[in-house]
Amino acid sequence: MGDVINNLPVVTDILSHFPDAQIDWVVEAPFSDIPKMHPGVKTIIPVSIRRWRKNLFKRSTWHEIKDFKQKLQNKQYDIVLDTQGLMKSALITRIAKGTRCGFAWDSAWEPLATLFYNKKFSVDKTRHAVDRYRLLAAQTFGYKPEPHINYGIVAPALTPSWLPENPYAVLLHATSRNEKLWPESAWIELGAYYKNQGIICILPWGNSSEHARSKRLAELIPDAIVPPAMRLEEAAAMLAHARGVVGVDTGLVHLTAALQKPVVAIFCGSDPAVNGLYADSPIRNLGNFGTPPTVAEVISAVEAVNKA
C-alpha cells in the first residue's frame, strides 16, 4: 500500500506539466481504491499477482491473467513507466505497448528489471521513496518537479454508520512485521491520554490476529471502538474526520499524510529516512530500528502536530 500512496504525487506532477495527459494505473486489486481517489487517474487496471502466485495451477487464474493482458494491451501508450524497479513490475511493463521507462541498473531495487526498459534513469537510492518516484518521472517526461508535494487525493464522501459523533482518534497498531509493532502497554497508555482529553479511540484491524489485538486493547482503553472490517475508501473517510491519528509503519499512516491530515508515525523496525511520512502537512516521524519512541515522546508529538 505504501508504494501506491507514495506514487500519487507523480500523477499530480505529470498533469501539472501536461494537463491533457491521460494516465492509467496498474495496481494490485486490494489497493485499487487509492488511485480512485485521485481525479487525474483515468483508468485503473487491477492486477492480482499475489493471489495468482498462490493459485498457479487453477484454470481460473490463467483466465484472469489472459484477461489482464488483453486489457493492458488494448491501448497504445506513449510512455509506460515502472516506478517500482522490481521484476514483477518490469514484466507487467513489458506486456504494455509503448516506450518502456524505469530505473537504471544502479537505481533499481532488482537490477535485472532494467533489461525490460527502453529508457533508463539513475536516481539516488538513499532518497525518500516519494522523491525517487517523482525524480524518475521528471527525467522520463523532461520536467523539473516543484518542491511542493501534492498527493492530489480527496477522501470519499462517506460516513460509516459506526463512527462516533464525538471526537475520535485512530490508533493504527497493526503492521505487516512483528518488529514494527509498538508494545500493547504503550498503546494502552496512549489511549488513557486520549480518554483524558475526551477523545474516543478507534482501533482498526485487517486480519484475525490484528482483530484479536484490537479487542485486547479495547478492553483496557475506556470507550475504545473496534470497528468492523473496512474497505480502503471507508478507512480513508475515517482517517479524514479523525481528531488525531497515530500509527506504526503501515500503509494507513501514509494515507493519512496523503490526505493532508496531522499524523504521528512510530518506527520500531524500519528507517523513517527512507520510508517515513513525507508530506507538507503536519507530520512527525518518531523512532528507528530498535529504538521505538516512548509514550511521552508520542504524546508530545501529537500535541505538536495538532497545534501546527
Rank of each mutant, 00 (worst) to 15 (best):
E210A: 05
D33Q: 12
V246N: 04
L220N: 13
T12A: 14
N207V: 08
D20R: 14
K307M: 11
V302K: 06
S214E: 05
D223H: 07
R50H: 13
M238N: 10
D13A: 05
A258M: 04
P262Y: 10
P30A: 02
H148T: 07
G191M: 02
N178A: 15
D3I: 13
V11T: 11
Q73C: 12
R50W: 11
P145L: 08
L8S: 01
E219T: 14
R213K: 15
R132D: 02
H63Q: 12
W105E: 15
V248I: 14
L15Y: 02
A236G: 01
A218L: 11
I65K: 07
A240I: 00
I153E: 07
Y117I: 07
A218T: 10
Q260H: 12
I188N: 03
L286M: 06
L163P: 05
W182F: 02
Y151G: 06
I45S: 02
F141A: 12
L158S: 04
P222T: 10
V245N: 10
Y77W: 01
N74H: 13
G276P: 06
I49K: 12
S122N: 03
D223N: 14
K195Q: 15
Y278P: 01
Q197C: 10
T175K: 00
V245Q: 07
W52E: 00
A104C: 12
A138M: 09
Q73T: 12
